[in-house]
Structure formats: structure tokens, C-alpha cells
């Protein structure tokens, strides 16, 4: 058990995967000498060399497109997209090739590629640096989408993602990069699983990524007022592992789904739809959502209003309880 930041936990996870398998490559903009703009790949180029840690040309379609070719050759590329809002030049390659080559070839050409994307707001950044585009990937068949929320998960989930023979879009909560936590010696859970991170009896709150911490803080605050919140970290956004959510809702009868992303046609919509399909008779209140708004990500001086915070989560909980 070692204490480290989430960024360092990812770094040590990448390092472990690279030591384990010489076919693992790290590639992206500024990931080599600089160590990535968030230093997630710090020191890897020095230790593994330029042919395994590629400072690439500034071109996201190029990053994904060549990673697809490298995977056809038998490599296991781990791509870094520098910021969430920069992934779209690579979206064509992700949707048209990365997601479909296995299916198109009927399994003859696997696509073991990981695309790491720092996502979400809260760091006062300029436009295109604070987005939450995960639903745009969860909608695409052939991709798997996960989001880590703490250092232990970050370390182990990146290793599990690299070991997966399916393409994984790996979302990292950028405003939590510098927060510390303990990283254990063994995998805490399978990659595509959700986890109850706080048990409670009154309301279920499902969340992922940067807002898991927010929801845990909300649960602690609610406890002081006598409300017992169960918090579930979804971790895997596609496929969703909703078994624990269903059993939780069958106990609590109430669900609030929390995310920074806009609510329309999103991961939170999917959770709400499936919970009403599976738990219709257990629900004491409609499934409610606390999310970012259906607007472009605002100028950063507005982001405290845009991002769900402790109070908005508790407001959602109160509405569910007061139904």
C-alpha cells in the first residue's frame, strides 16, 4: 500500500504495463520529454526510449489512425489525447476504424488500444479544456468506456484497460490528478464493474469520475442531517455494470444520477432508462439527475454554477426524498 497522487498512480500503472509487455507503446502530444502536460507519462520516455514513448506530431486523427495500424501490427498502443475537447479530429478514426476493425474482420484483427482522455472541468481553463464527452463514446458499439475516480482505481484500471483486447476509452478526472490516495497491491475489482463506495439506506447516488468525491462529501454532509446516502461509483460507462445499482435501488427506492456532462442523451439518461426498466416497482420517486447543463461548457468564471457541487447533489437527494 503506497500513497500517491492520481497522476502518479496512472504513471506507475503505465510503467507496470510497459514492463510487463514490450508491445505496449505510449503515444501522444508532449508525452515524451515533457512527460505530458499533466505529467502522467513523466519519466517513461527516459526509461523506455523514444520507440516506446512517442512524442507525436500534433494531430489527433494521426494519433488514433496510426495506433490502429500499430495494433494491426501487433502492438498495444496507449494514446494520450491532451484535453477532452481535442479528441474530435480523432473521432472519425475512433468510430470508423478503432471501434469496428474487430467486428469487420470477425475477430481476426483485435484492437487492443487504450485512448486516455483527461476530462471534466473545475480547473479554470479556457474553452475546449473542460468538457465531458464520454456519452459520445459510450454510444459507439465496439468501444468500451471507463472513468476512474481515485488513485487506486487509476493505477489498476489503466493496467486492466491495457490488458484488454478491446479498445478502451479511458477518462481521467483532470481536477483530481493532484489528489492523493492509497494504491493497493492487487486489483480492487474487475475493470468493467461498478462499486458501492459508501453504503446507505435512504437514497442511492450513482456517479463517476471527478464527482465521486463530490458525492461522498455530500453523503457525509447529509449524514449529519440524518440522511443515509449510498454512493455507487459506476467506473465502467460502457458497458454499464448496473447490477449493484439495481439492488441498491430495490433497497432505497430512490436514485439520483450525477455527472458533469450535459444530461440530454447521455450516460445518465441510460442509467435512468435502465433503472426504470428493471426497478419499476421498487421506485418511490422518479430517477432524478444532477448534471451539467445542456449548453456548451461555459467560460470558466461560470463553471461553479455549471458543475454539480455538494449542494446541488443534496438538492437532488432532497427532491428524491420529498417526492
Amino acid at each position: 500500500m503506497t500513497t500517491m497522487t492520481l497522476a502518479k498512480a496512472l504513471n506507475s500503472g503505465l510503467r507496470a504495463a510497459m514492463e510487463l509487455d514490450p508491445k505496449v507503446l505510449v503515444m501522444g502530444e508532449d508525452v515524451g520529454k515533457l512527460g505530458g502536460v499533466f505529467r502522467v507519462t513523466d519519466g517513461l520516455a527516459k526509461d523506455f526510449g523514444e520507440q516506446r514513448v512517442l512524442d507525436t506530431p500534433l494531430s489527433e486523427s494521426g494519433i488514433i489512425g496510426t495506433a490502429v495500424g500499430l495494433a494491426i501490427r501487433g502492438f498495444r498502443p496507449v494514446c494520450e489525447i491532451q484535453f477532452d475537447g481535442f479528441v474530435f479530429p480523432g473521432y472519425d478514426q475512433i468510430v470508423s476504424q478503432l471501434a469496428k476493425v474487430r467486428f469487420r474482420s470477425q475477430g481476426k484483427v483485435p484492437m487492443p488500444v487504450v485512448v486516455r482522455i483527461p476530462f471534466g472541468g473545475g480547473i479554470g481553463a479556457v474553452e475546449h479544456h473542460s468538457e465531458s464527452p464520454e456519452s459520445l463514446f459510450a454510444h459507439v458499439a465496439g468501444l468500451k468506456v471507463v472513468a476512474c475516480s481515485n488513485p487506486d482505481d487509476a493505477h489498476w484500471m489503466i493496467r486492466q484497460a491495457i490488458a484488454s483486447d478491446d479498445p478502451v476509452i479511458f477518462f481521467e478526472p483532470k481536477r483530481r490528478y493532484w489528489e492523493k490516495g492509497e494504491v493497493g497491491e492487487t486489483e480492487p475489482a474487475p475493470l468493467f464493474s461498478s462499486r458501492i463506495v459508501r453504503s446507505g439506506a435512504d437514497v442511492t447516488v450513482a456517479c463517476y469520475g471527478p464527482l465521486v468525491k463530490t458525492c461522498l462529501e455530500a453523503a457525509a454532509a447529509a449524514e449529519a442531517e440524518g440522511t443515509d446516502i449510498e454512493v455507487i461509483d459506476l467506473r465502467s460507462l460502457s458497458p454499464l455494470d448496473l447490477g449493484p445499482v439495481f439492488s441498491s435501488v430495490r433497497r432505497t427506492g430512490r436514485l439520483v444520477v450525477v455527472s458533469e456532462a450535459p444530461s440530454e442523451a447521455s450516460v445518465t439518461s441510460e442509467v435512468a432508462a435502465r433503472v426504470q426498466e428493471e426497478c419499476f416497482h421498487s421506485l418511490e420517486a422518479p430517477v432524478l439527475r444532477v448534471t451539467g447543463f445542456d449548453t456548451p461548457y461555459p467560460p470558466s468564471k461560470c463553471e461553479d454554477d455549471y458543475l454539480p457541487d455538494l449542494d446541488r447533489v443534496l438538492d437532488g437527494v432532497d427532491r428524491a426524498l420529498g417526492w
Binding site: S61, I64, T66, G69, I72, G74, Q93, S96, Q97
Partner: peptide, 17 residues
Amino acid sequence: TIVIGNQCLNATGYAMG
């Protein structure tokens, strides 16, 4: 490859390999 031009990057990646 039907999406026009996609394969040029895939081929380049393969050749890098």
C-alpha cells in the same frame, strides 16, 4: 476501407511498427 483516406494513417502506423 470505405471511409475515404482513413487507411493512410492505418498504413503509416503499421509501417511505423
